[in-house]
Amino acid sequence: MTSAKILTLVPRTILWLFLLLTAFLMLFPVALTVLGSFKTNLEVTVGATILPKVWQFGNYSTAWKAANFSRFTWNSTFVSAATTVGTLLVTTMAAYAVDRANFFGKRFYVVLQASMLFISIGAVVLRPQFDMMIGLGLQKSLWGVIIILISAHASIFFMLIGFFRGIPRDLDEAALIDGCNFYSVFWRIVLPLLRPALAVCGLFVFRGAWNEYILPLVFTMTRPELQTLTVGLAGLRYSIGSASETQLMLAGACLSILPMLVVYIFANKSFMQVSAGAVKG
């Protein structure tokens, strides 16, 4: 081997070692979770093994039935689906008006949304929000959580504005000449063309709602039947006792990770597109 070859080979090897080590560190905790969910409690807590000795598929049925994960999964699905549909509806309508029409107060509206992106006083807002939902009688269902999640739509609004710019205005004008009005241009021209963008933004909203923890936690403190996967799982830590049922917690964690993981395997490019779109602006 010539010295020139070694000179390019050594940095390349170091580079690959670095990339692979990072990949390993990223995957390892997830792999431990998945594999651990098939182990016995003893294996998880003292085993120091990678693979389970006997695959304990029963952990999942126990978590599903005894630890109430069927309920949590349904609640998470409901909250995430409703939030996704609601957010997309509210934001596409608003982005359409802002991008395609001129009206008094438009600047105020955009500045308002932009300030919503930056101002955060933390958990303080949960209290008045909660009181408001009690006033509306919505604290007894998950609709309170859903409406509050929909109300936090500033980032999706700005993402959609970016996508709207990609739809040529000529189309609107042609449709208007052909007898469409402001409403029918939205339903017949813009929405169909926006479908790929809606899929990407929908994915983003769904992920946010599915993974949301603090809001459902606060709203379901006294109503365990309304808890979502994230809240139910965290609650398991205190109710069963972490020392005795670790494998069930891992099975529960897998149940909450798995749906996102499956979607991610098929649509990881769309996921990444959203996040990247945020800086392109």
Partner: peptide
């Protein structure tokens, strides 16, 4: 893509 709260438990 994974919930921060779920991974915190793990």
């Amino acid at each position: 893509i994974i919930s921060a709260s779920v991974m915190s438990i793990v």
